[in-house]
Design a protein around this nucleic acid. Structure first.
Length: 485
RNA sequence: GGUCCUGUGGCCGAGAGGCUAGGCACCGGUCUGCAAAACCGUCUACAGCGGUUCGAAUCCGCUCGGGACCUCCA
């Protein structure tokens, strides 16, 4: 099946037909988490969205090299002439070494990825293990005349750069406008120009992380790690660079500047930006205090919701919004998603029990193609979900003898439904690991209840059903017998 | 203040000049001992005001509301 994947490119503002640099192979770099604290649900949404992208590229048969970095080096900002080393600060508070903190949060992050069913990237390089590569890029920038050394620090020379390249090509920013907004803040700075950004920052005595460099002891600037690591693992020209919308400026803009400055071109053909997760109409963020952790939602320990939700329900909920749209998380929305998720899961399991006829009452091939069409249009998962529900409705009708399906069509539909639901959307049937031990017990109970029902002993029958319901087990009576879940 | 995005039915969300997604909820009905599930049906929205057009939720302008970025941020 030939498919034409179209991707929205933030760089051009257009949807473009996706053509990898090397046939059948895709290189994708995504900005990963900063592990000085536990990633919150908003962070997860971005990673889940790029997991979807990764999964669909794999589904289309591409050989994908998916690189997602881990930021474990302290970033230095200089908005008010003040050094801020996030990792170092957190570490001081906790009275432990910064790498211990990073290690702890990394383990949590790995666990979260398992719970939310994220495929592991091909490689997850860390900033601290690529100091040398970062230094090399900085040296190249100095050599090319786009960076300067001052007092043991190195800055990117935006004015010099602007003579040859377009600073602001991604974010649409104009240097003059930037100056308007920031002029007052950066008066007494050692930078030559307000928009210059640090490539290497001289160490402060209280820094917890310090590395040697040709310019003295210090640590790398915020943006250089991504340039160094994407280049190392994907080359200086690769297919897709992704990240959260809030990284567009300055982080991605500066990455482009670093690449242009050192290799002479933009590192990626396509720039993808995933939109924010909102709570109460506002971006989920630490500073707004409206955030919760991915674990809290499935443990039911956040004040925002009165119950726990399965990670698959959360993932399904996220899939109902396009990655470039914001999505609002609320109790009602999650509850709705939970119902829809259950209906979808039940239909997929029904697929293996369907009776077939000589012909199908609908065009199954067309239905299946609609799944591809949805995803081919810039990974439009909400449309895919809508189309999957068309299939759900059809499956239920076949089950109720109101529609028919041929055995060939059933085979194809099952294969594609499973593939799109489980492999592409990355949704799983919620795991019930005690289900095997429970089965014989349930059989016994259902038989007892069936006897009671035969005798029209509704009191007993309802008592059993209510008790099971209290234990979280739902009983369904139908002509074919009683089922439970 | 600058740049940009956005406003869709009770809720969440697609779409993006005519064919008016989908999920959840609600309301009728079928089925059922009753439920649940499933099925059938109902509900037909695009902030406001102008304009372009044979035709606008979709394009343009203005007004009002929400948001993002400009500082660490997924």
């Amino acid at each position: 099946m030939s498919q034409n994947l179209v991707i929205y490119n933030s760089l051009t503002g257009n949807k473009e037909i996706f053509k990898p640099i090397h046939e059948n192979r895709v290189g994708m770099y995504v900005c990963g988490p900063t592990l000085y604290s536990e990633p919150h649900m908003g962070n997860m949404r971005t990673f889940i969205n790029f997991d979807l992208v990764y999964r669909y590229l794999l589904k289309l048969g591409y050989q994908v090299k998916y690189v997602r970095n881990i930021t474990d080096a302290g970033h230095i900002t200089n908005s008010a002439g003040e050094d801020v080393d996030s990792i170092g600060k957190a570490a001081k508070l906790a009275q432990v070494q910064s790498l211990e903190i990073v290690y702890t949060f990394n383990r949590k992050f790995i666990e979260l990825q398992r719970i939310y069913n994220l495929l592991p990237p091909s490689i997850e390089p860390t900033a601290t293990q690529h100091i040398q590569e970062q230094i090399e890029v900085i040296e190249q920038l100095i050599e090319n005349g786009f960076a300067y050394v001052i007092n043991g620090s190195v800055y990117f020379d935006v004015r010099k750069y602007s003579e040859k390249f377009n600073y602001g090509i991604l974010s649409g920013r104009k240097i003059e406008e930037l100056e308007e907004a920031t002029r007052t803040l950066n008066a007494q700075d050692e930078k030559r120009f307000f928009a210059d950004f640090a490539l290497w920052k001289k160490a402060n005595p209280e820094d917890m992380q310090i590395w040697r460099s040709p310019w003295g002891d210090g640590n790398p600037g915020w943006h250089i790690e991504c340039t160094a690591m994407s280049t190392k693992y994907l080359g200086n020209k690769f297919d897709i660079h992704g990240g959260g919308m809030d990284l567009k400026f300055p982080h991605h803009e500066d990455e482009i500047a670093q690449s242009c400055g050192s290799f002479g071109h933009n590192p990626a053909n396509i720039w993808m930006h995933a939109n924010m997760l909102n709570v109460n109409g506002q971006k989920m963020s630490k500073s707004f205090g409206n955030y919760f952790l991915p674990l809290e939602i499935i443990e039911g320990t956040t004040d925002l919701f009165d119950k726990a939700y399965d990670a698959n329900v959360v993932r399904f909920f996220l899939m109902q919004a396009h990655y470039r749209s914001t999505i609002d998380l609320s109790k009602d929305a999650l509850t709705a998603a939970e119902k829809g998720y259950t209906r979808l899961m039940e239909a997929t399991s029904l697929l293996s029990k369907l009776k077939t006829q000589d012909t199908s009452s609908i065009n199954v091939a067309q239905l299946i193609q609609s799944f591809y069409n949805a995803m081919n249009d810039d990974f439009n998962a909400p449309i895919l979900v809508a189309n999957l529900f068309e299939a759900v409705s059809y499956i239920n009708k076949v089950n109720d003898n109101l529609a028919t399906i041929s055995s060939d069509d059933l085979k194809r539909l099952k294969a594609e439904m499973d593939s799109f639901v489980f492999d592409v959307l990355g949704i799983k049937a919620s795991s019930n690991n005690c289900i095997d031990r429970l089965s014989p017990v349930m059989e016994l109970i259902i038989n007892l209840r069936a006897k009671a029902r035969e005798n029209k002993d509704w009191a007993t029958s309802d008592q059993i059903r209510d008790a099971l319901s209290n234990a979280g087990i739902t009983i369904k009576d139908s002509k074919e017998g009683t089922s439970w879940s």
